[in-house]
Amino acid sequence: MLVGTTGSAFGRTFSGGLPWKAASADPPVPISPGGWRFFTEGEGRLVSAIVDRLIPADDLSVSGNDAGCAVYIDRQLAGDYGSSSRLYTKGPFLKGIPQQGYQGQPNPSELYRRGLAAITRYVAEKYDGKAFGDLSPDQQDSFLTELEADRIELPDGVGGKEFFGFVLNNTMEGFFADPVYGGNKDMVSWKMLGFPGARYDYRDHVSKHNEPYPHPPVSILGAMDWASK
């Protein structure tokens, strides 16, 4: 009886046509413009400075911060990603293998809050009270290199190498993800790579070998050439 009840609670039967509703769509919500949603001003400055070293401006592209990576990370931390609200977050907490990804207890927003505070403290103690953003690019690079190599012990027991991994991953996500999420401004990384964007049909091009794909990239939100002049 109980089984029957459970079954009917979860099972749905459709007859006739497939279910369909006019004017329905479930598109991603574009990020809201303006200031930080998760970061404090200090945290925002620190993350902006870090992403500018992870993706420095050069002849290939604008910098990580100019591409919107810090804004991307901020909006992600303020949303479902930051609070792990769509993940199982109860114990037990085991180390896991690298392929299993992050298995720790603190969620990303907690990790960032503690990690950024630890970096701020570490840098201030080592460089006469300076902030990370005030260091020279070489000093910044050397700090980040050491952090990645696990040769820096951050205060408060923060795992520097693990935190660096988070920031690097999230920066790449922001740089390469659809602009609707705040990064990859004007599809800068897609133009750099020649990635055609949110398309799913190439039948007219599969037989054209050794020819560059001719069309500009398109975002979920559209493309520049959709506007008639």
Binding site: G17, L18, A23, S24, A25, P27, I220, G222, W226, S228
Partner: peptide, 20 residues
Amino acid sequence: PTNPSMPSLAWRLSDKQVAD
């Protein structure tokens, strides 16, 4: 019996873009 459907594009296109 498997009637196909076309998705709504109003969320993505402006009135001007639909017109064009």
